[in-house]
């Protein structure tokens, strides 16, 4: 199970919002949506990122800490090393009667983009609820729409789309008619609320959790969430 870090060259950088960029790299990974990679800059750090796309490999990264700010200093032609793909991703059923509803909060939208791409390629109808604090923080609306998803933005300040949290928009969607599957990624509180809503409605749900990731390969135990559940091996998607 060779997971040596492989160097990729950045071919394109897309500004998503004031603090978030998508880095498009010069290669592909055999990955499923929801899987993650450990991105490494020699001498700096190594951290987990969900794949926003696998062919070409794309990572959507917000500059929120020293390592992500270091990645943001990279330019087209620079190298970024990736170890992976790692973990278990979202699992789409063979056939789906009804909609796939995606719920993304903040930077959690990144892996849902990859999932939307995969679902649309199979002809599944996709509704994407994308939430953020303000309109300036929203991510990937155009990319999701271009994939053919019905996009429902939600902002806490009401500057774009539905005013309130993604969970409010999800409750609306569930009242409209039950989807075949709900897949969500975002902050812990949001995921817990999404899980609760779906369980109450009897809708299958898959949740992608974040964790403090160190080895990424099931050895160190740092990413344990709850009762012995390893985010790196058992997740990051709980399904």
């Amino acid at each position: 199970m060779n997971t040596l870090p492989q160097p990729f060259t950045i071919t394109k950088i897309v500004d998503e919002n004031a603090v978030t960029r998508t880095f498009i790299l010069d290669g592909a990974l055999a990955a499923e949506p929801g899987q993650f990679v450990m991105a490494w800059l020699p001498g700096v750090d190594e951290k987990p990122f969900s794949l926003a796309a696998a062919n070409p490999v794309s990572l959507t990264i917000a500059a929120v800490g020293p390592f992500s700010r270091a990645i943001h200093t990279l330019r087209t032609g620079d190298a970024l090393w990736l170890r992976g793909p790692l973990g278990r991703g979202f699992r789409l059923p063979e056939k789906m009667t009804g909609e796939l509803v995606l719920v993304g909060g903040g930077y959690g939208v990144a892996p849902l983009r990859f999932l939307a791409e995969t679902a649309r390629a199979r002809g599944f109808p996709v509704r994407a609820i994308v939430g953020a604090r303000t309109s300036a923080d929203l991510l990937a609306l155009d990319a999701l729409a271009a994939l053919g998803a019905t996009v429902i933005p939600a902002t806490e300040d009401g500057s774009v789309g539905r005013r309130g949290l993604v969970t409010h928009a999800l409750a609306d969607a569930l009242a409209d008619g039950l989807p075949a599957l709900v897949c969500a990624c975002g902050p812990t509180g949001m995921l817990a609320a999404v899980g609760k809503l779906c369980d109450a409605a009897g809708v299958p749900v898959q949740l992608s959790w974040e964790a403090h990731m160190r080895c990424g390969i099931g050895l160190c135990g740092s990413c344990e969430r709850g009762d012995g559940w390893l985010t790196c091996l058992d997740g990051p998607v709980e399904r």
Binding site: L4, R83, C215, G216, I217, L219, C220
Partner: peptide, 14 residues
């Protein structure tokens, strides 16, 4: 600090 482990194909270094 990270990185703390890698599987290089012949085994793991940590």
């Amino acid at each position: 600090p990270n990185p703390v482990a890698v599987d290089w194909g012949g085994g793991v270094l940590n």
